[in-house]
């Protein structure tokens, strides 16, 4: 399938998914009501009946920020995964491999166990202090992994993978140690946090991930040529005129920034970053010029669908979104693997 076709298909299905997401939920909202509300918002009519109504609140304060958050988080995770796999030339590379996820868990657990409850109940820019802890934790752990594997000869990818495993294990052990000595309340908080959660989406969070996402996306695109060159190997890329060390440093920093913010606003959501780039690569080929944007949109749509199902399937209750990303993505991935085997 050509990159353009798949891209067009995904972009066309996006508004469809968004409309379904806006109209389904505990309260069913027919499409004409949605359109009517959109028009009144768009033309800024001061119809106070509309803007104070329950439907308005559900559409624009609950569902829309949640849909935006799901899409943006999925986009950032999938693109970061694609970049990681290119950078490490390793199909298993995912942000979690260099310690982003375990760092985020550790940061969050540290805040939960050691910060006072006053600190926890307050928020900065719509983000809880726990989320900030997660962000700082992911940065700190990735930085450690990076500096361990960087010498005067540059950053060794192999060392970075190994260091990532070692430091992640250490962070994981610390995390287990913290949860073992945590009291009842803290324990519940740690486990709930690790499940990933989009239900408390708000506009400030969308803004954070939107700004970070746009920044990361822009630079990823500019580096897609270097990423293509890196696929040939590091020395080949160097001969093609790529400043390999600089590109590596920049991309590692950006993926950490992207995934760290995604984790901070939505908790741990696995699977999207690892599998979406593989699925897209097997459909349209390894050219990063197409792979990056298509992976991004596909990741966003997967998380959107997963999150809509998470709140609709067992209504009135919700199930953790992470369950559904795996349930939706894994069978598709297995199907692709089986197909490839036939071709060989």
């Amino acid at each position: 399938m050509a990159s353009r076709d798949l891209s067009a298909l995904l972009w066309l299905s996006l508004p469809l998914v968004v409309i379904v997401g806006m109209s389904t939920g505990a309260v069913k909202i027919p499409i004409d009501v949605i359109i009517q509300h959109c028009i009144s918002v768009f033309f800024r009519s001061n119809d106070s009946d509309v803007s104070s109504g329950q439907i308005y609140t559900i559409l624009f304060d609950i569902r829309l920020p949640r849909l935006c958050l799901a899409f943006l988080v999925g986009l950032v995770l999938a693109m970061s995964g694609a970049v990681m796999q290119g950078l490490f030339r390793n199909p298993l590379a995912a942000p979690s491999l260099i310690g982003v996820s375990s760092g985020a868990s550790l940061g969050a657990s540290l805040v939960i166990v050691f910060a006072g409850s006053w600190l926890q109940s307050n928020s900065i820019l719509g983000l809880s202090v726990i989320a900030m802890g997660a962000f700082i934790g992911s940065f700190f752990v990735t930085l450690t992994v990076y500096s361990l594997s960087t010498s005067i000869f540059g950053t060794s990818v192999t060392t970075m993978l190994l260091a990532g495993i070692a430091v992640s294990a250490l962070a994981g052990a610390l995390n287990t140690w913290l949860s073992y000595f945590a009291d009842n309340e803290m324990l519940r908080q740690i486990s709930v946090w690790q499940m990933g959660n989009l239900s408390t989406a708000n506009w400030p969070r969308v803004l954070i991930i939107g700004v970070v996402g746009a920044f990361v996306l822009l630079i990823f695109f500019r580096e897609s040529q270097s990423l293509n060159a890196l696929l040939l190997g590091e020395s080949e890329a160097r001969h093609l005129g790529v400043d390999v060390q600089y590109v590596k440093k920049k991309l590692i920093f950006l993926t950490t920034l992207g995934v760290g913010s995604a984790v901070a606003v939505a908790g741990m959501i696995g699977f999207v970053g690892l599998v979406i780039p593989h699925i897209v690569r097997s459909l349209i080929g390894p050219d990063y010029k197409g792979l990056l944007p298509v992976s991004g949109v596909a990741g966003g749509i997967l998380l959107l669908i997963a999150d809509i199902l998470a709140r609709v399937v067992f209504t009135p209750i919700e199930i953790p979104t992470g369950i559904l990303t795996a349930v939706l993505g894994a069978p598709f991935f297995i199907m692709l693997l089986a197909d490839q085997r036939k071709q060989i």
Binding site: G25, Q54, T57, I58, S199, R311, P316, I317, E318
Partner: peptide, 19 residues
Amino acid sequence: FATSTPLVPRVNIETIMKF
């Protein structure tokens, strides 16, 4: 939420708004 499962269900704000 008396009739929901499991014992400690996750719920969202719009469901609360509906009830």
